[in-house]
Structures are given as C-alpha cells and as structure tokens.
C-alpha cells in the first residue's frame, strides 16, 4: 500500500492507503472529517467539494494518492478557531441552507468562486454553482448568502 502524505486544514497527515482510495474516503474515513459528504457517483452534486492547493475540487473524483504533497482545506478547516468564515456566517444569516447536506460543499465552492471573481452578480453566482446541487433551497438564499459574503470578503 502506498503511503500518502498531505496537509489537511494546516495539519500534516500521512497514511498507508490503497491506490484506489478516493480522496473523499481518505478524508472521511481515515481522518474522520465527516463534513465532506458524498451525494452522487457521477461527480455532479458537489457535496464533496474541498480545496486542493487553493482550488475547489470534487474529492469524490480524485484519488488520495493524487493529493500527495497537496494542501487540502475541508469545511472543518474554513473557520479560524471559533471565528467562522464570512461565507459560513452568511449562509446562516441568509438562510442559505435547509437540510445541510449539500451545504458544506456549497460553501467550499462559494468561497473559491468569490476568491476567483472580481465581480459577481446574480447570474454569475448562479452559473458559478453549476457543480453543486441543492434539493432544498431553490438556491435563492444560497445566491443571497454568497452575494453578502462576497461583500464581507472584499472588505
């Protein structure tokens, strides 16, 4: 079994995993970070989104061994201690979640979207969420959450 080492939420981690272990499985089962979810098997729902070297990626569509040496951030690593990330606060403030299952991936995608965009309007946020499916909210309050967080993150 290959040994894989990476930095997850600022902590160096290392484990022996079989080559066919998905990154999401490594995160959930080896590291017990269960905030990253699995909602589909065709790489579309986005419940599993994490950041890999600062870019959002679907951890269900990556092998753990592909993340060798990478910096991974999961939802658990987004807040600074007790200080929530503006995106997390904004989802609560704007009722951007209902059942919560898609939320963690949605937040991780949203943070990357805001980080990479100069200007976001309703349409570009909606387009930017193409890789995340929510069944509860109708997206309206997710869009609102991201708009509000984007302002906060700029400031």
């Amino acid at each position: 079994m290959p040994t894989v080492s990476m930095t997850v939420n600022g902590k160096q981690v290392s484990a022996d995993v079989s080559s066919n272990t998905l990154l999401v499985t490594f995160i959930r089962e080896n590291l017990k970070l269960t905030g990253t979810h699995v909602g589909c098997d065709t790489s579309q729902c986005g419940a599993c989104v994490v950041h890999v070297n600062g870019n959002s990626a679907k951890s269900c569509t990556m092998l753990a061994v592909q993340a060798e040496g990478a910096e991974i951030t999961t939802i658990e690593g987004l807040a600074k201690g007790n200080d929530l990330h503006p995106m997390q606060k904004s989802f609560q403030e704007n009722h951007g979640l209902q059942c919560g299952f898609c939320t963690t991936g949605m937040i991780m995608s949203a943070v990357d979207l805001v980080n990479k965009s100069d200007k976001l309007d309703d349409a570009s946020i909606r387009e930017g969420l193409e890789g995340n499916i929510c069944r509860c909210t109708g997206y309206q309050n997710i869009v609102k959450s991201i708009q509000a967080a984007a302002k906060e993150m700029e400031a």
Binding site: T34, G35, V38, I75, L84, Q92
Partner: peptide, 21 residues
C-alpha cells in the same frame, strides 16, 4: 429568527447517517 440548527451544518459537524461508525 436565524436557525439554531445551522451552526453544526456550516462547520461540517452535522451528523448524518454515513458519518456514524
């Protein structure tokens, strides 16, 4: 009122079935 249940979901501490071992 902002939802009381949200905190655990937005920090990844929700406890869905597959999270239980």
């Amino acid at each position: 009122v902002r939802r009381k249940e949200d905190k655990r979901f937005i920090i990844g501490k929700g406890r869905y079935l597959d999270d239980i071992t």
